[in-house]
Amino acid sequence: MALAEKIKKTLDGIRHQFPTEQALLIPALHEVQNEYGWVSIDNMKDIGEFLHLPLSKVREVASFYTMFKLEKQGQVDLQICTNISCWLNGADKLVACAKRKLHVENGETTKDGKFTLTQVECLASCGTAPALMLNEDYYENVDEALLEKIIDDATKDLAAGKVVGKSTRQEGMWL
């Protein structure tokens, strides 16, 4: 297999912005993460081939950054901030609520493969704590009622075949 054509196209489109080819590695990993929801060894090989980097280089970078998932994830990554300001404002209740509702522990994926529950570190939303991310989208000042609604809405949207939590994504742009 090779890297998907549209990913190659996106990367070729930004090549001129950077002095080295390796600079494209993090963008490439982001694109793969977005496309497949995780980064497999095969993906890494494809990236390495396209960017002329050995697998070891791709792997050492992929494994360094928490946003690149090296195992299969749920379709929706529900990431609740539990760092200090969110913690002081009741992030613990949100985590408990999400666990109850999804029947998973932190870091686990629901049996139907729809949701992964993740605890994340400070999202720079301390003034609107507690905060969470649903895939790419931020939600702030979240309480349990809102969290339940977020999960219910996401469940409905997934069932209707819609993309969830990527409301500002633009096709062909790696950012």
Binding site: L25, L29, H30, V61, M67
Partner: peptide, 19 residues
């Protein structure tokens, strides 16, 4: 891609190089 240490300026530079 989610690493607090990349705020340290030389870590940032490495990350900017795709490392």
């Amino acid at each position: 891609a989610g690493a607090y240490i990349c705020g340290e300026e030389t870590a940032l530079l490495n990350s900017l190089e795709g490392k």
